[in-house]
């Protein structure tokens, strides 16, 4: 089957395609956070480092707004995934 733009993976962590992003926009999403809530794009281990800009561009294109005016998405800690075993030991003697 021929691949189209819609088959391009935009969020590599959660396997979300450009087609799914476009469908969410067609269904009324106007912000990155809404697209994240619908598709999980940006919810994976990299927290949207790759896909956030791509989604912002697509939203800007579809809504006719400059990228800078697309509602910014929330960025949450930790900045990279950390095991629960390591986090449990924060503050213990001999640990940094």
């Amino acid at each position: 089957m021929a691949k189209t733009d819609d088959d391009i993976i935009v969020c590599r962590c959660e396997d979300v395609t450009l087609g799914e992003i476009r469908r969410a926009i067609a269904e009324g999403a106007t912000t990155i956070d809404e697209i994240r809530r619908i598709t999980r794009a940006g919810m994976g281990p990299c927290q949207g480092r790759t896909c956030r800009q791509l989604i912002a561009s697509e939203l800007a294109r579809k809504t006719g707004k400059p990228v800078a005016e697309v509602w910014p998405s929330t960025v949450r800690p930790p900045m990279k995934p950390i095991t629960m075993g390591s986090l449990a030991k924060i503050g213990e003697e001999g640990e940094e």
Binding site: P45, Q47, P77, P78, P81, I82, T83, M84, G85
Partner: peptide
């Protein structure tokens, strides 16, 4: 949680 479910110690936290 790593006390109650020790298997979790190798699972990574992604977001809080």
């Amino acid at each position: 949680m790593t006390g109650l479910l020790p298997v979790l110690k190798d699972v990574r936290v992604v977001r809080q």
